[in-house]
């Protein structure tokens, strides 16, 4: 099992947001997480990535057989975890090129490899830019600075492609994308799918799941996964909304 989350409780500033969540992801699987606004989806994603203020009060996150509750975020990344942010951060003065070169070299150092050569790096950049069809000039700009909403999301997928993670968590990467961009992003993800790599896709829309077909769909409500099913669950949610889930939840 690649990721095994057991009875996870996460608090932010003393307020419990994730309240006893279980989730298992095997290599090669695609999981979709859906659920109403403010129920803890991003909190879960950020807790897996290791954000400091997100305190794990109970339970554990087991990744590749190891408890990573206290692992610093950079080590999680170098162990193969990638988070596509719902709200990517703007970093003035740091170009995407330098950012990615640093990141790749940090990954390589962690693995005991020498730094990537400049030609090899540039070839890789070109290759991955094509994959997500992003404009060349974008990579010379500061990270996310002045990017449109869609450009930011494409940039997340570009970084994912560059870093070749084992577990990718994409938090609403489809929000704000036009129809063509959505297809591009989905194609990008599909090209990176292997028997080893797994994806956790947080989304509000079933449309993305037409392109990236999930093995499992989960509904996150009130800090817990309250329902899981196959890809048809997403269609059902799109048709019926969340009210019936909420009712079911309250009855239990």
């Amino acid at each position: 099992m690649l990721l095994n989350i057991r009875n996870l409780h996460v608090s932010i500033e003393g307020k419990e947001i994730v309240k006893g969540l279980d989730l298992s992801v095997n290599n090669g699987e695609v999981h979709a997480i859906m659920g109403p606004n403010g129920t803890g989806k991003s909190t879960l994603a950020l807790a897996i990535a290791g954000k400091g203020e997100y305190t794990i009060t109970q339970g554990e996150i087991i990744y590749k057989g190891k408890n990573i509750n206290n692992m610093p975020p950079e080590d999680r990344a170098r162990e193969g975890i990638f988070l596509g942010f719902q709200y990517p951060v703007e970093i003035p003065g740091v170009s995407i090129t330098n950012f990615m070169r640093t990141a790749i070299n940090e990954h390589r150092e962690y693995k005991g490899l020498p730094p990537i050569s400049a030609p090899e790096f540039l070839a890789k950049m070109e290759d991955k830019k094509k994959l997500v069809e992003i404009q060349s000039k974008l990579t010379n700009r500061s990270v996310n600075e002045g990017f449109s909403g869609g450009e930011k999301k494409k940039n997340e997928i570009f970084q994912m492609a560059m870093l070749e993670p084992t577990l990718s968590i994409l938090d609403e990467t489809d929000s704000g994308l036009d129809i063509d961009a959505l297809r591009v992003v989905a194609n990008g993800v599909n090209k990176l799918r292997t028997k080893e790599n797994a994806f956790v896709i947080i989304t509000h829309y079933q449309r993305l799941l037409e392109y990236i077909v999930p093995d499992f769909v989960h509904v996150l409500y009130d800090g817990r996964i309250v329902k899981s099913g196959g890809k048809r669950l997403a269609v059902e949610l799109e048709e019926k909304g969340y009210d019936w889930i909420k009712k079911e939840f309250e009855m239990n």
Partner: peptide, 13 residues
């Protein structure tokens, strides 16, 4: 926020 974003890509603190 920027610190976390960079670290989440594998860059040490």
């Amino acid at each position: 926020e920027a610190m976390f974003y960079l670290r989440s890509r594998g860059i040490t603190e």
